[in-house]
Write a protein that binds this DNA or RNA. Structure first.
Length: 255
DNA sequence: ATGGTAGTCTAACTA
């Protein structure tokens, strides 16, 4: 079973890329972020025609999450329970006995800003939610755009992306560590300790061409799912296509 | 270095 995540930065624009990658990547489950579409505009028919069932929770212009699956999608949860949030950033469902939690973590804009505080509060609420989910679902994966690079191996320039920078600040990394401390593992690091593997490159200044990236798209697996995780990776190819998302798909293969 | 690019929507915000 292959489980993947992709921030598509507008599903309206990226639908052709999505359909193409469903063919060549052949994921069993693919979760999306930044669909930027209200639910009545979600391209359900096109995705179902490609052989996938869908659950989605979207809004206009910003955010929006979706879960695509070749198998039945059950027990869909939209948003973080008990956390009032107008922004559509979290979606959970159960597929093939695995609890899937799709996150589009708040970007945070700048350290110390209002949006940064919201990011930290949002991550705290997610951590409480995942703690509770783990009591019911030992087979669990939390994946998506985390907007946090876990450590210095995950940034192209550690002097630029430092303790005081957005996406790498001490408080953001501490929040990610608290989530991992529930008993989750960064699946990419199960198979590679190498630095320089990125999942996002800024559109500006030839970021992809120069490989000025960050690894901020993560697939976190529970202890029980870790034991079943055979491979993990980042698909750079769609980032080379014409008019791409700024993010690459990331994935795990479980037995 | 306070730029640069992309998406949404056509002004200004978000990333």
């Amino acid at each position: 079973m292959k489980i993947a995540s992709w921030n598509v930065n507008s599903l309206n624009v990226r639908l052709p890329h999505l359909l193409e990658w469903l063919k060549i990547g052949n994921p069993d489950v693919l979760v999306l972020q930044e669909t930027k579409l209200e639910d009545h505009k979600f391209p359900q028919a096109e995705i179902e025609a490609a052989g996938y069932r869908v659950a989605f929770d979207g809004q206009k212009t910003y955010n929006g999450v979706a879960i695509l699956s070749r198998q039945d999608i059950a027990d869909v949860q939209k948003g973080i329970p008990g956390f009032a949030d107008e922004q559509k950033r979290a979606l959970a469902a159960t597929v093939g006995g695995v609890r899937i939690i799709d996150l589009y973590v708040v970007n945070g804009q700048a350290v110390g800003s209002e949006k940064y505080d919201y990011k930290l509060r949002w991550l705290e609420a997610v951590t409480d939610w995942v703690r509770d989910e783990l009591t019911r679902h030992p087979q669990l994966v939390v994946l998506g755009d985390f907007n946090i690079a876990p450590d210095e191996r995950d940034v192209h320039d550690a002097a630029l992306w430092n303790d005081d920078s957005i996406l790498t600040s001490t408080a953001e990394r501490a929040a990610l560590k608290r989530l991992l401390a529930l008993g989750l593992f960064d699946s990419f690091r199960l198979h590679s300790e190498e630095a320089g593997h990125f999942s996002w490159w800024d559109y500006r200044m030839g970021g992809f061409r120069r490989n000025l990236g960050l690894r901020i798209d993560l697939v976190l697996v529970s202890e029980a799912l870790k034991a079943r995780t055979k491979a993990s990776g980042i698909e750079r190819e769609p980032r080379t296509w014409e008019r791409p998302s700024d993010h690459a798909p990331v994935w795990i293969e479980i037995e």
